[in-house]
Design a binder for these strands. Structure first.
Lengths: 342, 342
DNA sequence: TTGTAAGCGTTATCAT
DNA sequence: ATGATAACGCTTACAA
């Protein structure tokens, strides 16, 4: 079964007493081929159940019409939405996607990237793992003349195309909103500060405090609270302080916010009256918790489309000079019950 | 930048005054090559930043070491988990994944499949769209000598490798559980009956009623309630019946169950006392709604791994005879507050 | 408009 | 152990 030989342009040519090149031309809808013969070729191609061998075609043409995508986890809402967005845009252009996941591990990320280089993909789209600090593997992509686009979690030092969220601004907006709602002691759950996105979110938090004349308090900023469990633990710690916070900004994710909410519920602390909660990412469940959780929408699907379109634009750009280009998407604060005091 | 020529085995051969074939052998770790020269070749390969052109290699070898995956939607928990599972298993074997989404449209599904055939993938893994009734495109895969594995939503008539959930049994279990909890008038929200999985779930529902001596009531079975919105509408309809149901089995998804819950909450109907609710798929939010929602776990990640391993097994099977093989995974009922009456 | 032939980068099969 | 050469299937100058 599996070894059945597939029809090639030679088979078609032979059957029609034509030259393979004519068949190729017809199949590529070249203008310089007789309409009658073209029809004939197309007809017999269909009869013989011919499908082009893209491998051969791409080898000859020197590109693969394939984009490689590396994300920490495929089955995370944000990433799968971005991928869906990329797929949506690239599909229309006849491009294929090769998806890899790093599982948040640096080693696997390197491996993924190398595989994609081997595959001679035309472009690699990546959001780095939480472990990633070195970036030789990304430089390597560039060295192979492969287009590199970073998104969301990007390595700042590397001059590549980038699509990011304006994390600082959205973080600033969220905290400002909470201050406006009358919260005075706002705690921050931070993600690993290795990652630029988490640094930015912290910066936004600090800037909001500053602009409202509130002094940051070290005890209220908890490092590495980036999972639901870690956040729950952090929350217990925060709420047992002599002067506990009256709001918590779970800047890492909605899962963290959920951890906060669960602990608050167990401790019978009223949200939003006694404690305000804000998450990040607009996961679908934030709408249906009680109370619903204020969060930040990152427009993930749109982000994916933007990444893809950025690539196509860059392709069309015939200049040999590579212009570093960064697109920043402004996330949107979604205010819900968990921070609405009246 | 982009057009930079990449190092080939010729470049290495030239530099070392060797024959390309020797280089190839060394790079493939062939035993019939001098250890010293092998070392030398590997060293200069690294120096010249060589990476194998998989396109050429695969063309020569006659396969692509690539598996194509077609799903209705990438960004749905169930599917992204399955994909993650497939990726996890195939990655270790040096395989790549090409992901496509049909967006639940038949036309796009056909297009996806054809692209994958063009790509000369070694295997196509598919879960068909809700629109799919014809299956010429799948037959076509077989005709090209490409391995085809269906999962979850499968076309029964087509004899291929399959990995399915035992939908009927899990559905039976869910309804039996509800009956045990004292629910007497259990309504069913059905998915499109074109899809085998939804037919099976209905069958399981009917069998459970029968075994417990309950006669099915036509008014309590609502067709095509397979989104949150449709389910909400269906729920309003059901609850306004002269004799409304005392439980609703949202057999299509947890999103449907959510629709039910929201309407019940609005109508101030107490769950689970006045109305029991059961969903399907164990989406992460089912745990955190109030009340939490009873649902069915499909072991999606494991399902993906199973699909991948099925392929590898089949590969090793050197018999020319193709043995149709179907693996059924037994889902697990997760009972939660929404159906727990005491 | 069609045919000829070279080449994309590998690998497999010879021969040396 | 290494070299020469053909072939995988397609595209594209160039020639006719």
């Amino acid at each position: 079964m599996r070894s059945k030989k597939r029809t090639t342009i030679y088979d078609i040519a032979e059957k029609l007493n034509l030259n393979p090149s004519s068949v190729s031309r017809a199949l590529n809808n070249s203008s310089s081929v007789n309409d009658a013969t073209k029809k004939l070729i197309l007809k017999t191609a269909k009869e013989l159940n011919y499908t082009r061998n893209t491998l051969a075609s791409n080898l000859r043409k020197g590109h693969s019409k394939t984009i490689g995508v590396v994300v920490p986890r495929i089955n995370q809402n944000f990433f799968s939405n971005v991928i869906a967005g990329i797929e949506d845009a690239t599909y229309k252009q006849g491009y294929n996607l090769i998806i890899c996941q790093s599982n948040e591990q640096y080693e696997k990320e390197v491996q993924c990237v190398n595989t994609l280089i081997n595959q001679h993909v035309d472009c690699i789209v990546i959001s780095v793992s939480v472990e990633t600090t070195a970036h030789d593997h990304l430089q390597n992509v560039l060295d192979h003349g492969i287009q590199l686009i970073q998104f969301d979690r990007v390595v700042d030092e590397l001059e590549t195309l980038k699509v990011t969220n304006d994390n600082e601004q959205s973080s600033f907006d969220a905290v400002s909103h909470m201050i406006t709602q009358g919260y005075k002691r706002i705690a921050l759950l931070e993600g690993p500060q290795k990652l630029n996105i988490f640094r930015q979110r912290k910066t936004g938090y600090l800037r909001a405090l500053k602009e409202h004349g509130i002094a940051p308090i070290a005890d209220l900023m908890i490092e590495n609270a980036w999972t639901k469990e870690l956040s729950a633990a952090a929350t217990r710690q925060l709420l047992s302080l002599p002067e506990p916070p009256d709001a918590i900004f779970a800047s890492t994710s909605d899962f963290s916010a959920l951890g906060v909410l669960e602990v608050a519920t167990i401790m019978q602390i009223k949200v939003p009256q006694q404690l305000g909660i804000c998450g990040y990412a607009n996961e679908n469940f934030t709408e249906i918790t009680s109370p619903s959780i204020t969060t930040i929408d990152q427009f993930s699907f749109y982000m994916g489309k933007t990444v893809a379109n950025l690539y196509f634009q860059e392709m069309e750009n015939t200049d040999t000079v590579v212009v570093p280009k960064v697109i920043s998407i402004k996330p949107k604060l979604i205010t819900r019950a968990s921070t609405t005091r009246e």
